[in-house]
Amino acid sequence: MTRGVVGILGLVVALAAGGERAGAQGSTAAVEARRVQGNVYLLHGAGANIAVQVGDLGPVLVDTGMAERADDVLAAVRGLTPKPIRYIINTHADADHIGGNERLAQSGTALQPRGVATVGAGQGLRAEIIAHELLLNRVSAPAGERAPTPIAAWPTSTFSGREKDFFFNNEGIQVIHQPAAHTDGDSIVYFRRSDVVAVGDVYGTTSYPVIDAERGGSIQGMLSSLNFLLALVISGEKTEGGTMIVPGHGRISDEADLVEYRDMVTIVRDRIQDMIGKGMTLEQVTAARPTMEYDGLYGAAPGWTAAQFVEAVYRSLHPAGLSQRR
């Protein structure tokens, strides 16, 4: 078995183990709420970041954090509103983003239970869980096979096209599929009146982007998604604020922060592409340290090192793809 395959298996194991990587917050930290702007809040400390839209009709959650923090997340939501959770929207299938699905959905109540909304758990009173269909494919399994997550955590309302829109709590909500970015089932969630977009692991401030090729991610898809986001967000006065971004991990951001990240990913992609064009092996590329100046910013995330990022980009760009050996 090559070291490259070992590296990929290591990532798969890490993902299966709960997504405790890429800047995931420790499991003992308090779950804290902070208003982003408009009706949207950030819940921090439950693994991945959680965005919560609060309104008269009840809260909407974007992601649910790690399973073991679900009660803390629920308490934090209760601190924002006494109303039951109506919708959960998942940005992708990592366990640190969907781990609380089951508990939080069970705590809530769909505003208008629909047939499709009750398929997952068979309970009409749960909150609806919305996600792209490819996410459902990742967390479920064909009949007769063992699914990686319990059925009660599965999405109950999926979409298969580019986008799902709905209007809730007096604002439009766009759930927009980002194909082949972190995974093939990524979505971003844009709260239009609040002007806040929750982006899952398409963007973060604490690690290099995790390109999960085994689940359909790619460097080109990641860059396409980052550039899509740049086109979506608008800076406020004096080039700060405006559209606010809730990343999968790290701090609340705006366009200026996103630009730095997009630039970094583009520059690293270009360097590795150039090295591949020169016939350099993965070992040679890694030794050349194409991320060197950014490692102090993004290279210390648990479970997703600079070398892993370089390897993922290399394999994503190399004509031989995943099978490329060292």
Binding site: E32, R34, L42, H44, N49, K238, T239, E240, G241, M244, G250, R251, I252, S253, D254, D257
Partner: peptide
């Protein structure tokens, strides 16, 4: 503020 608060110029 905590580290996850926004940064500004």
């Amino acid at each position: 503020p905590p580290e996850y608060a926004p940064h500004t110029w």
